[in-house]
Amino acid sequence: MPLHPAIAQALASLPAPPPGPLNPAAMRAGEESQVPPLADRLPLHSVADLTAETAVGDVPVRVYTPVEADSYGVLVYFHGGAFFLGSLETHDHVARSLAKETGLKVVSVGYRLAPEHAFPAGLEDCYAVVRWAADNGESLGWDGTTLAIAGDSSGGTFAAAVAGLAHDDGFDRITHQVLFYPSLDLDFDVDRYPSLRENAVGYGLETAGLKPFNAFYLDGGADPADPRVSPIKRADLTGLPKALVITGELDPMRDEGELYGRRLKDAGVDATVSRYDGAGHGFVQHFAWIPEFHRAYAETRDFLAR
């Protein structure tokens, strides 16, 4: 089906990108300028900025408590942004919605970004915070049951990679992984997946932009053949946590996410793949105010309750 008309209208209103190479500092500042004031954000019982003291150093986290309760399941969330954009602030609304819809305590991770911090710094931060959450369950009010991980776009890359790292380390506390339109194969050969050609132009994220946007990460030593970088390269997916993979019909990265979901199923993992028609990349972050796409939060809630 065609792009949702509200998305199409929003994309048509965007100014043309400035000429020249991408400027991380300017792009980050532009994103931060769009963050709404606190008074306009979804209210929760509490939101607290903390420092997770981990084996790889101190990592800033933001902890969202949806309601007052004696204990909670925990969801650790990794924001997207092509490994060089995004922050606790730019994705605050996503974390708030996850907390409200799921009823879980959400720990959002302010991991180190490329290009200032080369691979595997950001991934190490994400995995370390998951271990920190499990080790500090009492202070977080964790009920000892659900310990989920979730991420959108490159945050979905990190979520899938963290699931693999945890499995390899024998850390079996992760119960669920939620991947919102994940980037799972950083080999951007346009012939690898039909969606890279079918959805190449006109739907927001464009195939031609994948290489330059991810160059800050790849140029820092992230090898696309490494399963920690491209989780779809992992040969054996058995034993990974149950998974929900959400894709957009008109996203260039649709097919790699859906293939990963099928491979998980083939490996005996309880995996659900859910495609959102009329959606391009980033619809949970940018267009969840549209009821058809806000449903992704309800679907996540139902999946995590299983």
Rank of each mutant, 00 (worst) to 15 (best):
F78H: 15
H79Q: 15
H79R: 15
G80L: 13
G80R: 03
A82M: 00
A82V: 06
F84D: 01
F84I: 03
G86L: 02
G86R: 01
G86T: 07
L88F: 09
V94A: 08
R96H: 13
S97L: 09
L98C: 12
L98E: 09
A99D: 12
E101R: 15
L104E: 06
K105T: 13
K105W: 05
V106H: 04
V106M: 12
V107K: 04
V107A: 04
S108H: 11
V109G: 10
G110I: 04
R112Q: 13
P115D: 11
E116P: 04
E116S: 14
H117I: 11
A121F: 06
A121Y: 14
G122W: 00
G122V: 00
L123K: 04
E124P: 05
D125C: 05
D125S: 08
Y127S: 07
Y127C: 04
Y127L: 15
Y127P: 01
V129Y: 02
V130E: 00
W132L: 01
A133T: 13
A134L: 03
A134E: 13
D135R: 10
D135L: 12
N136F: 11
N136W: 06
S139G: 05
L140V: 06
D143Q: 04
D143K: 02
G144V: 07
G144D: 01
G144Y: 06
T146Q: 09
T146D: 05
L147D: 02
A148M: 10
I149Y: 08
A150T: 08
A150Y: 07
G151R: 06
D152Q: 09
D152Y: 14
S153T: 14
S154M: 01
S154N: 02
G155M: 13
G155T: 02
F158W: 10
A161P: 07
A161C: 03
A163F: 05
G164M: 11
A166V: 09
A166M: 13
D169N: 13
G170D: 02
F171G: 02
D172S: 13
D172K: 14
R173P: 03
R173C: 07
I174S: 02
H176N: 11
H176V: 08
V178R: 09
L179W: 04
P182S: 08
